[in-house]
Amino acid sequence: MFVINCPYCGERDQSEFSCGGEAHIVRPKQPTELSDDEWAEYLFMRKNIKGVQFERWNHAHGCRKWFNMVRDTSNDKIHAVYKMGEKPPVI
């Protein structure tokens, strides 16, 4: 149970948040132009890193804002949180 520093609300208990999986996967602008394989790559393929991972999180039971978070999945250390649209930090 970690403590997450919501970029809008500040530090809150993990139970207020939900994880939305890997971050920085952009929805293709022209899906119809893509082959089945390319579309499947966007739709299904996710990394599951042991180590530093960029993730989407939602302050579901708080401000309901989505934001990004850099977390080490091997020890749950949170390296950074940043708003949607902001440039990912270099870790």
Partner: peptide, 13 residues
């Protein structure tokens, strides 16, 4: 609601 919010905030801000 949460799915629509997700698209609004992240894909189509």
């Amino acid at each position: 609601l949460s799915k629509l919010e997700d698209y609004l905030q992240t894909e189509w801000p």
